[in-house]
Design a protein around this nucleic acid. Structure first.
Lengths: 189, 189
DNA sequence: TCGCGAGTGTACCAATTGGTACACGGTGGA
DNA sequence: TCCACCGTGTACCAATTGGTACACTCGCGA
């Protein structure tokens, strides 16, 4: 039962992502991680070949978790753009996901620096999220060109306010700014 | 002439910030930095006491450079909010400052992780920039409460689009989204 | 029963790190 | 002139890092 190698690997990488979300990916060491998740650094090398490959898997899995959030967005069929925006906002700012969001920004920063395991995330960082937002805009009647602009703007605003929230912790202030945005975005038409 | 200790220190820290803006602060080593700016790692310790103190000065100086951008904003007396926004946007997205902006996000990421030399930036990350934006809003006739919300929103949007720009490099697409924002922000009243 | 291979631990290695000890040189003041 | 001191280089140290070698155990198939 479940003794397969892949299972063990998957279990390790999952624990590793949790650890990294909590303690950061920057100064991760195999020994520290191993001690935290109950395995020797020797085993991490054994299962993943090298630290770099382990990091690749960590980044990929962390990305996958973000994508799971996204899929919840995408799966709502007839959701209006404003509801999509609110939903996105509420999900991203769930305190339980704070660590995951911090990790997002940390990986982003390292990707900008060219850290090889992190760089690939830059490709999908914007486009992946744009797609469902554009779809919601178009469904709501915007023409495709402005739909793209509006979606891009909405995504950027959400992320900028998330950055604010993580820095200041001022949930009320940031929520108020978000409401102001929604008013501008949907209220004036 | 000019042989004062402080001068040498200041010169070193300035070169260090340039180096860090180009190569990142994450895996900085005294030897690597020293070799790049023409000084032995021994001297960096001599002038700064420890790597940590050097990093503190690097972060502080990098913050100061951001603040210089800010002061140019603040010094415009009767600038309308929309012009302030455009000015801010154009300055932040100047390709010559790309490295500096990357460093901003990198330091932010590390600050979220609790890296001691970076954490202090979180305090002023939002509030410092809010002040002149709020002032511009109030001067343009907004009541103080919504002025604060609008300023916070504008700052977040600018940063979110900057994140997009650094990730995708799609200047045209991001500029278009910015224009869409300005239309919403100022056009509908 | 035997043996083989996967999973694991211990010990080790080379490289890199921040930091220190000490020695040398030059410049300015007594 | 000579002495003190600042700036600098070289050599070194201890700690930590990723990665490897080898030995051991345990379960399963022949």
């Amino acid at each position: 039962m479940g003794g397969k190698v892949g299972d063990r690997r998957a279990q390790l990488v999952d624990a590793a992502v949790d650890y990294v979300a909590a303690y950061g990916i920057g100064d991760l060491s195999l020994r520290g991680l191993g001690a935290a998740i109950g395995v020797s650094h020797r085993m991490l090398i054994h299962y993943f070949g090298s630290k770099e490959q382990l990091l690749v898997e960590i980044v990929r899995t962390s990305e996958q978790r973000q994508r799971d959030l996204l899929s919840r967005l995408r799966r709502e069929p007839g959701v209006s753009p404003i509801d999509a925006a609110r939903l996105l906002w509420r999900q991203l700012t769930d305190p339980q996901l704070a660590n995951q969001e911090r990790l997002f920004f940390e990986i982003y920063g390292q990707a900008l620096r060219g850290r090889p395991e992190a760089v690939p995330v830059l490709d999908n960082l914007v486009t992946d999220w744009l797609e469902p937002l554009v779809a919601a805009e178009v469904a709501a009647g915007a023409d495709p060109a402005t739909a793209r602009n509006r979606a891009r703007l909405g995504l950027a605003t959400v992320r900028g306010l998330l950055l604010d929230l993580l820095a200041t912790g001022d949930r009320d202030g940031v929520d108020a700014a978000m409401e102001e945005f929604l008013r501008l975005y949907y209220g004036s038409e």
